[in-house]
Simulated assay, not measured.
Amino acid sequence: MPSLEPFGKDIWIADGPVVESAGFAYPTRMAIMRLEDGALFLWSPIALTPELRAAIDVLGEVRFVVTPTCLHYVALPAWRAAYPNATLYAAPGSRTRAKHIAFDADLTDAPPSGWRGQIDQALMHGNAIATEAIFFHRASGTVLFADLLQNFPADWFKGWRSLVARFDRMIGTQAQVPQKFRLAFTNRRAARESLARIQAWPIEKVLMAHGTPITQNGAAFITRAFHWLIRDKA
């Protein structure tokens, strides 16, 4: 049963059930951020349960529901039905990949007026798999990554899946950019420009959908995680 865990000022996280993608099991995690007027911004929603809904409703009114990548959409129909007055934002590619979902608006490099000045955002351009929207919650100093940073426990996968996960850098001492995403950055100049915007934020903590959160020295962690992109001038 998911429960809300504070992660800083006006931000909470909730871990959800495991979902399967391409034969691999992934844990799920969402974040809830409360804006200055009391409204809620939901990032990468997990499976909705009555208990989770009740806990979120205590925090405030759900006004924005955001999928940060076109790969995170399985739980969205339930949230769309539960909060029909909330604005549902699509990451690039979401409308094509999840045609059954009625999105209201699209994420760009510029935050909309609803959360501008409180939550910053940048699209991570140049990747052939997905254009992920990276967010920065100013009040808590937290940057949020959905799939571009991952780290699974050493015993999470079994058999051949464990070998593939290690090769793909899904398993390691720290969260890394998986190999498949590294190779998919076909326009690295565009990716470095996106990363430069992210690095300009005063990052203290790093929250990931598939990895252990980083609670200090977040900016240095991001630099290490993307060192291969920073040094590649191609």
Rank of each mutant, 00 (worst) to 15 (best):
S162P: 00
D104H: 15
W115L: 08
T186R: 12
N151Y: 01
F103N: 08
L123C: 02
P153A: 07
F103S: 06
V164R: 10
S44K: 09
T215G: 03
G159H: 06
P112M: 07
A25Q: 15
L4R: 12
A82Q: 04
K233A: 04
P77V: 12
G93V: 13
A122E: 10
P77L: 14
T173M: 08
L52M: 06
L35N: 07
A39E: 14
L195N: 09
M30P: 02
G16A: 06
Q176H: 12
D168G: 10
A219F: 04
L163G: 05
L123P: 02
I13S: 14
H72C: 06
H72Q: 13
A209W: 00
T69M: 01
T186C: 04
L35Y: 04
Q179K: 11
R116D: 07
Q176Y: 01
D120P: 00
R80S: 11
W201C: 09
L107M: 08
E36C: 09
S113R: 10
M208S: 11
A22G: 00
R182P: 00
L48I: 05
L163M: 13
R53W: 00
Q176F: 01
G117C: 04
D104W: 03
A128Y: 01
T212Y: 03
I46E: 02
H125T: 08
P202K: 13
A82P: 02
P17N: 13
T69F: 01
I46M: 04
K233R: 11
A54T: 09
A31M: 13
L229N: 06
G126L: 03
W228R: 09
M208G: 06
M124G: 02
